[in-house]
């Protein structure tokens, strides 16, 4: 019986019919999605922190308004994704708890500090650029609510990348000090951005499950290569360089070759030992704990109003 369901399920996926929350699905599919969607949501929420750092110090009112709008979008993206995960049966508070206790992870990129204004440019260009490269294929992922959330996210993400590139473009036309600041930011963020695509592809038999279920459509390395090819060209427009001496066009492959990623650093950051892991999680927990009285008060008020209405009826 179970096997019949599984066959019907896989058949739907193969025919590109989206799976909806009330449809039968393998338990492992549900769990993989809960994990992936909630971690994606956590990344959006934690992702507000590095940029929030610069809202009060943006160099002009125009930049400040843009940065505020971008950070607000990220809150929105987190909420779209949490609501998609909730359709799978997990509650919002459970997801928060997993984040706050460190059980659930978020993208390692947000554990790096934002040291200068140029970091706002590089985050938009590289970090959001890498995110878009990954998120566009997710618009066709097999689980309906996730795919629909990603369509919304992708529509809004394009402005994020363009405003970042614009910041860098303006700096590239600026003073020597501004150019140095921008190049320094690129140097610091380039490798962590490449790590965002996740570990290298390997030959493990476990690798195929997400592909078979059409949660994923491209491998980490495929997407990473695409990202390198695009950025290697875009950086020329800025007149800056990417910090990789092995970066070179390979005529035969039709792609850029690039240097070895420091995977040890990646795993260190994932496991909680990055420069800002503790700071990010502490900020998040503090906001949650200090907001508790507001949540309680709002609920108490709503209950009181409901009772009054009942009594009057």
């Amino acid at each position: 019986m179970e096997q019949d369901f599984e066959k019907i399920f896989q058949d739907k996926v193969d025919r590109e019919i989206r799976i909806e929350p009330k449809d039968w699905m393998p338990e492992k599919y549900r769990q993989t999605l809960i994990r992936q969607i909630s971690q994606h949501a956590h990344s959006e929420i934690i992702g507000m922190l590095p940029e929030g750092n610069w809202i009060t110090r943006a160099p002009s009112l125009r930049r400040k308004a843009i940065l505020l709008a971008k950070v607000q979008d990220e809150a929105g993206h987190g909420l779209y994704l949490y609501s998609a995960a909730e359709t799978l049966g997990i509650t919002r508070d459970q997801m928060y708890e997993q984040l706050h206790t460190g059980k659930a992870k978020y993208s390692s990129i947000f554990n790096y500090p934002t040291l200068s204004w140029a970091d706002m440019g590089v985050i938009g260009w590289l970090v959001d650029g890498a995110a878009i490269m990954n998120q566009v294929p997710l618009c066709r992922t097999s689980f309906g609510p996730y795919a629909r959330a990603m369509v919304r996210v992708c529509k809004e993400e394009s402005f994020h990348q363009r405003q970042g590139f614009e910041i860098l473009y303006v700096l590239s036309k600026g003073t020597e000090a501004q150019r140095r600041m921008a190049q320094d930011a690129i140097n610091r963020w380039w490798w962590p951005s490449l790590m965002m695509f996740g570990p290298k592809d390997d030959e493990s038999p476990n690798t195929i499950q997400s592909m078979k279920w059409k949660i994923k459509r491209f491998s980490n390395d495929e997407l990473r290569q695409k990202f390198v090819d695009v950025c290697a060209e875009q950086v020329k427009v800025l007149g800056f360089t990417l910090p990789d001496k092995d970066l070179k066009w390979n005529e035969e492959r039709g792609h850029y070759d690039f240097g070895e990623i420091n995977w040890d650093e990646f795993w260190q950051v994932v496991q909680g030992n990055g420069p800002c892991n503790k700071e990010r999680l502490d900020a998040r927990k503090k906001a949650w704990e200090e907001g508790a009285w507001v949540r309680d008060a709002a609920l108490a008020y709503a209950n009181k109003k409901a009772k009054q209405k009942q009594a009057a009826a």
């Binding site: 993989t32 992936q36 993208s107 965002m196 390997d202």
Partner: peptide, 21 residues
């Protein structure tokens, strides 16, 4: 061998198996 794709950062414990819904 745990395979992690973008947006999936693994977990300190055994997957999401113990998520109570």
């Amino acid at each position: 061998i745990n395979k992690l794709y973008y947006g999936d950062y693994g977990e300190s414990k055994n997957g999401a198996a113990d998520i109570s819904t």
